[in-house]
Computed example of a mutant assay.
Amino acid sequence: MRITVFRKMMADEFGEIRADMMARDHVFSSLGSRTVDQALEAGVPAKEIWRAVCDAFEVPPDRR
Results as ranks from 00 to 15, higher is better:
F6C: 03
S29C: 06
E16D: 07
Q38F: 12
V59Q: 06
R34C: 11
L31Q: 03
D55Y: 06
P45Y: 04
M21N: 12
H26F: 15
R24K: 15
T35G: 05
E16Q: 08
V5A: 08
W50G: 00
R34T: 06
T4V: 14
G43I: 10
P60T: 09
E58N: 13
V5K: 12
S29A: 15
P60K: 10
R51K: 14
A19E: 11
R18Y: 14
D12Y: 02
E58G: 00
F57Q: 09
A39C: 09
F6W: 07
F6T: 04
P60Y: 03
F6Q: 08
W50I: 01
S33W: 12
R64I: 04
A19Q: 06
S30K: 08
E41P: 00
I49H: 02
V27W: 12
M22R: 13
L40I: 15
M10I: 03
P61N: 14
R7A: 04
A19M: 11
A39M: 12
C54Q: 04
E41D: 14
G32P: 09
R7C: 00
F14K: 06
E16I: 01
R2E: 15
F14Y: 07
M21H: 11
G15R: 06
I3W: 02
F6P: 04
M9K: 15
V53F: 05
R2N: 15
I3Y: 05
D37S: 09
I17K: 14
M1Y: 09
E16Y: 01
V27E: 07
V53R: 03
K8D: 13
C54K: 03
R24F: 05
K8R: 14
P60G: 03
V5D: 15
M22W: 08
R2F: 10
G32M: 13
A46F: 06
K47C: 02
L31E: 04
M21Q: 12
D25V: 11
E13N: 03
L31T: 07
A46Y: 06
G43Y: 12
E48I: 13
V59M: 08
R64E: 11
D25F: 14
S30N: 10
P60A: 09
E48C: 01
Q38S: 10
D37R: 04
E13S: 08
D25K: 08
D37I: 04
L31M: 10
R51M: 09
A56W: 00
K8A: 10
S30P: 01
V44S: 05
L31V: 05
W50M: 05
I49M: 08
S33H: 13
V59A: 02
T35I: 13
A52K: 00
E13P: 00
A52M: 02
V5T: 13
R7W: 02
E41K: 12
R2A: 12
M9P: 00
S30G: 09
D37Q: 12
G43F: 12
W50Y: 07
W50E: 03
E58K: 12
A42T: 07
I3F: 00
I49L: 11
A52D: 02
D37M: 05
A42S: 14
Q38E: 15
A19R: 06
A11C: 02
R7V: 01
D20Y: 09
W50D: 01
A39R: 09
A11P: 01
Q38R: 13
W50C: 01
E48A: 13
D62P: 00
F6K: 03
R64T: 04
S33C: 10
D12N: 11
G32L: 11
R18T: 07
A52L: 02
L40M: 11
